[in-house]
């Protein structure tokens, strides 16, 4: 047995937009064990609810207060959710390309993502933080001409995205870096509680959107799964989800009913609610408890990245040292979300 050495990875690392620290135990060029440590961006959001007004947290409060929001607002939320998924997956594809050194591919992914951000800006006013939801509905309506324009733009974009994703799926340099790397078997995915594309790439059919929150109940879509359980499979699942999102948006625009976009809500939340949502990175869980005042008693948020860290540690065991940045990226880490 060769000598073991420990290489620190992060918190500041060129491949990471956010700080996470891993102690990599190496034997020559092989990683034997990875020990993660987080906390660099912990802000104490769950404690902050005791100091900040409850109006900052929408859907869960609506569940506590038993508010039924108008149908049009549900559809608008669905459309914005899917647009978020589109831009998030394009962002991830770009970061992945950057991690294996394909700079021009990274630039093209992010160029396309900007179109979606422009749409966000036109419809909500913000590029990253939208502040468009409120308790009882949404603050801004998208009129039908805007929705039609968006669908036209998505039609054009779909063709461009297809050309782009062909590079990921057919280029041999990409395949060489991703195929057979970072295998998380179906059994391990269950054991380590993987969520989102990470889990679906291991062949498990599960998608929280199928619970039918917002307008997802009225929309026809299949759960996308992969079968090879490796990094390439995770890339493939996310690419297919991009095209699925285009489809969902088209269906939602075709079916969106007329009507108001919000209802008035009076009073303070009293009681508790537990909500599961499918974010681009996987299933997120929210739990809030109100006590009848304008401040909440308890909040709990479990984000998909947090659920995927055990799987990450698992796939890092036995991998090549040079593959570590790519494997860290394949879980689509959002460390800021994880640490709240």
């Amino acid at each position: 047995m060769s000598k073991r050495s420990i290489v620190p990875f992060g918190p500041q690392h060129p491949v990471l937009p956010e700080p996470i620290h891993l102690d990599l135990v190496l034997e020559d060029e092989k990683v034997v064990e990875a020990i993660p440590s987080i906390g660099f961006i912990h802000r104490g959001l769950e404690k902050l609810v005791e100091k900040r007004n409850f109006h900052d947290y929408m859907y869960v409060i609506e569940r506590i207060m038993d508010v039924e929001i108008p149908d049009r607002a549900k559809y608008l939320r669905t459309i914005w959710c899917e647009m978020s998924r589109l831009h998030s997956h394009l962002l991830w594809l770009g970061l992945l390309a950057d991690a294996f050194g394909f700079e021009s591919l990274f630039m093209h992914c992010w160029r396309m993502r900007e179109t979606i951000l422009d749409m966000f800006e036109a419809s909500t006013g913000g590029r990253v933080i939208f502040s468009v939801n409120k308790i009882g509905g949404v603050l801004k309506d998208m009129d039908n001409s805007m929705l039609r324009t968006f669908v036209d733009m998505f039609d054009k974009m779909e063709e461009e995205v297809r050309q782009l994703t062909n590079v990921f799926l057919k280029d041999y340099t990409v395949a060489n870096r991703l195929k057979g790397v970072g295998i998380l078997t179906k059994e391990d995915a269950v054991l380590y509680g993987a969520v989102g594309p990470m889990m679906r790439a291991a062949g498990i059919e599960s998608d929280t959107r199928k619970l039918g929150y917002a307008a997802y109940g009225d929309i026809d879509f299949d759960i996308i799964t992969g079968k090879d359980c490796d990094s390439f499979s995770r890339c493939e699942v996310r690419i297919n989800e991009i095209f699925q999102s285009f489809n969902i948006i088209r269906q939602a625009v075709a079916k969106i009913p007329e009507g108001p976009v919000s209802v008035d809500v009076k009073g303070n939340p009293n009681g508790e609610a537990f909500v599961r949502l499918e974010q681009p990175r996987g299933e997120a869980i929210f739990y809030f408890r109100g006590n009848g005042t304008q401040f909440l008693n308890r909040a709990r948020v479990r984000t998909p990245t947090f659920a995927n860290i055990p799987s990450l540690v698992k796939i890092l065991e036995g991998c090549d040292f040079a593959d570590v940045p790519i494997l860290v990226l394949t879980i689509d880490p959002c460390v800021s979300c994880t640490e709240r």
């Binding site: 937009p17 956010e18 660099f40 992010w110 990253v128 959002c334 460390v335 800021s336 979300c337």
Partner: peptide
């Protein structure tokens, strides 16, 4: 470097 932000500004820096 992300000094404990919510990642919003970070993706704008990358943009």
């Amino acid at each position: 470097y992300d000094g404990s932000s919510c990642n919003g500004c970070d993706i704008e820096v990358l943009a």
